[in-house]
Design a protein around this nucleic acid. Structure first.
Lengths: 229, 229
DNA sequence: CAAATATAAAAGTATCACTATCATTTGTGA
DNA sequence: TCACAAATGATAGTGATACTTTTATATTTG
């Protein structure tokens, strides 16, 4: 997967931005800079003013790309989900057994991102941390419904649908495949956050990555075919 | 549980408030009003100015009770967890079988709160909705660690520990009891939100409460004793 | 080279989080 | 009933921030 990929670039729903940040140097600096700063400061302490200063530009210029910092967050999160789907497609290619594919998918979705690289200005490690700490703030708002109608969340929905399909391949009569997958993803994020900040809500196990292990067990046990069902 | 309870009142860690809102009429109006308004407007659109107007008081007076709206949210969420633990203790009293107790606990933790009443000025139905939409914002901040050191989150941790103990009673060798319980609680919140706003992330089933069913299945399947383990 | 376009510079508005001051009300104890 | 303290109200003020507007200056492109 690593080195000789055709140059792919991840496309984000164009309702999220006013001007495509991939289309200019300044746009890419906005993305790169905001990833750095949101990871450092947290979303609430992050402002366009500070970002402008960091990238030696101005607030007004940033506002030409994104209508608000909320939309910038949506952009980052959406980019992440699209990237995740891309990773998933590559990671699962040529694996026949649906069980193996599901296991690999769970690993990809729940592990801590460690490599940074394929996409120039985007630091995937930091972006992963942002998604863990901030992504729920992108949808836990009073504007969800409007934004959802505009397709803002479709990258996430599509990812969930894709993994859900693998679940159904393994057990077509399992009734809660979407719930299971979205619980898996959101749950793994919470658990990563808890492990770092509220460890008594988790079970730290030396050596192994407990979050991945726990997730796999949870998913595979849940979808086991039971007698009558 | 309903009618003739001795007057209990739920105590919240006194580091959360400057002055106990239970100790005065104005304090109770702040709590009652903020529950109404946060549920209506969402946490980000809610301000002390608007609240002051609604309860015919002033911003300055509200600041005598809470040092910021973040702390007011912490108060509400903490109250909710303490209340939940209280409900749990009553709900599980006199049930011997740990399986039955766990099942009941899952119902209490994941169902939509429907009764409002025992605690005068607090609307538990609306508070439950607030917890679903806003509670993660109470800890997903850069100040978690400091606040955690002050014991701000101990009500939640205690609740998780209590349910975790039931899990361990059923299967003492299950390694991830805290993770399972915190995933259960957070997961049920996400799913309730998704069901209302992003339904493609869930599986709506007519008739039954799919979220409760899914949660029970997930928990009981996860903790099943396996051959060697 | 001219025209369009993107960015910078700077100033301005509205709201909000939070503080400070002082007057008024209310409750309490002697 | 008076005297005092505590709680609340009224009002103003500060500094940040989200976002807008205008105008000037680069930069690109045809």
């Amino acid at each position: 997967m690593k080195d000789f990929l055709p140059k792919v670039s991840i496309k984000v729903n164009d309702k999220i931005y006013l001007k495509d940040p991939e289309s200019s140097e300044l746009g890419r600096k906005i993305i790169a800079g905001s990833i750095e700063m949101i990871e450092e400061l947290g979303f609430e302490n992050f402002t366009f003013g500070k970002l402008a200063q960091r990238i030696s530009s101005t607030e007004a210029s940033i506002y030409r790309y994104f209508e608000s910092k909320h939309y910038l967050l949506l952009y980052l999160v959406t980019w992440y989900w699209s990237w995740m789907e891309y990773r998933l497609m590559f990671g699962l290619a040529n694996i026949d057994s649906p069980e193996e594919r599901l296991e690999k998918a769970i690993t990809l979705l729940t592990e801590q991102v460690k490599e940074d690289g394929a996409f120039g200005h985007i630091n995937e490690i930091k972006l992963n941390k942002i998604v863990i700490c901030e992504s729920s703030k992108a949808y836990l708002t009073k504007e969800v419904d409007t934004e959802n109608r505009e397709g803002i969340f479709s990258a996430y929905k599509q990812l969930v649908a894709r993994v859900s399909d693998i679940v159904l391949e393994i057990n077509p009569s399992y009734k809660y495949s979407h719930m299971l997958v979205s619980t898996l993803i959101e749950g793994a994020h919470s658990q990563r956050f808890f492990a770092d900040h509220l460890p008594r809500l988790t079970d730290i196990v030396e050596g192994e990555d407990a979050i991945i292990e726990f997730s796999k067990e949870m998913v595979f046990q849940s979808i086991k075919k039971k007698n009558g069902k």
